[in-house]
Write a protein that binds this DNA or RNA. Structure first.
Lengths: 119, 119
DNA sequence: CACACATATAATTATATGCTTATATATTAA
DNA sequence: TTAATATATAAGCATATAATTATATGTGTG
């Protein structure tokens, strides 16, 4: 019996290129790296990236459209998280190994008293 | 003594995003996938991708600029290959694992009698 | 309900990207 | 040296992208 490599899923060149293009943006790559650590809501991203709220929303939208992230409303907030059931999830996890941890960004939110999401 | 993971090199978020953006193009991703198999010259790429020669040259230029590929003149041809000494090489290799082999493209060149590079 | 807060969408704008055509450069062969 | 072939670069154009502002929608609270 051949053992399947659980860290590998072969994808289309075209689909893969689309994912790479999507993650080929500093803001979005940081976002997924953060989401690999913890879930996070829109207004927290706005604080972290010092960027307009619509801009953040649009970045998240693009990632949601390709199924990389998912959203969940929690009261007045919308909390985003990595979609671990995506066919691209393994690729994304692999990519993130090559990028430094973004945990500090959550620490910064805590310090500033801007952390929203409750655990 | 801590054993270093030879398949992992942690990079800047910004640099990584640039690499992903570069490879977030169907043509360029196919190109590096081909180069991971064998070296290849410009005119062969032109045949494979059915695209103008300047367009191919420009794609290769971008990848050369980031150090992902390197070139070597062989007579009237310029042969491109993966730059295995690039700081991005490990990331690129990892990415390519998630993409199907492009060996068939070389087979197609052979069949059509368009294979140039000599081994 | 009215208001505040959080988020999404639409419209606009500036810039980046990818392709084409035209042209320049480099190499080989007659 | 001239012609043919291979490649690179420049300029122009059409489309894509990422940001902004303005506005709409959704939710909690008095």
């Amino acid at each position: 019996m051949i053992k399947e490599d659980k860290s590998l899923k072969v994808l289309d060149v075209k689909d893969t290129a689309n994912i790479l293009k999507l993650l080929g943006d500093k803001t979005r790559l940081s976002m997924v790296s953060m989401l690999a650590e913890q879930e996070c809501c829109v207004c927290e991203f706005v604080e972290i990236f010092q960027m307009s709220q619509p801009s953040i929303s649009q970045h998240l939208r693009k990632m949601k459209d390709l199924g990389i992230v998912k959203e969940q409303r929690k009261g007045q907030w919308v909390v985003y998280s990595l979609n671990t059931t995506s066919e691209y999830y393994l690729l994304v996890r692999e990519l993130l190994k090559h990028v430094p941890s973004q945990r500090e960004k959550f620490d910064w939110l805590e310090e500033k008293g801007l952390r929203i999401t409750c655990y």
